[in-house]
């Protein structure tokens, strides 16, 4: 990454710039891969880019998922359910 020496408000891209935003979560999305029809709607609608696309399948990145529940709501086959986060 090219770094600039100028002392002004220059910020550099970083995954987790705000830290592990997964700690914000109260409810946790749980994906049932057997139910999943690989429509990718959860992936495209995730406001956090926290659902990773692996070819046609998806994985939830719990480090950053804030637990909004949009994915569960847009899933046409209820393959994602929200469960109370337990820490």
């Amino acid at each position: 990454m090219k770094k600039y020496n100028v002392k002004t408000g220059i910020s550099y891209p970083k995954i987790g710039a705000m830290g592990k935003t997964g700690t914000w979560r109260i409810f946790k999305p749980i994906l049932d891969k057997n139910k999943c029809i690989k429509c990718l709607r959860c992936w495209v609608f995730c406001p956090e880019s926290a659902i990773k696309r692996r070819n046609d399948s998806v994985e939830i990145d719990y480090d950053y998922c804030k637990g909004c529940g949009v994915c569960a709501n847009v899933c046409p086959v209820k393959a994602i359910v929200m469960a109370k986060e337990e820490r």
């Binding site: 090219k2 600039y4 100028v6 002004t8 408000g9 220059i10 910020s11 550099y12 891209p13």
Partner: peptide, 17 residues
């Protein structure tokens, strides 16, 4: 330029500080 908006080296200028 001593800093610039460059698509090959993306930076954000002026976000929250």
């Amino acid at each position: 330029p001593k800093w610039r908006l460059d698509v090959n080296h993306p930076i954000t200028h002026g976000n929250i500080i």
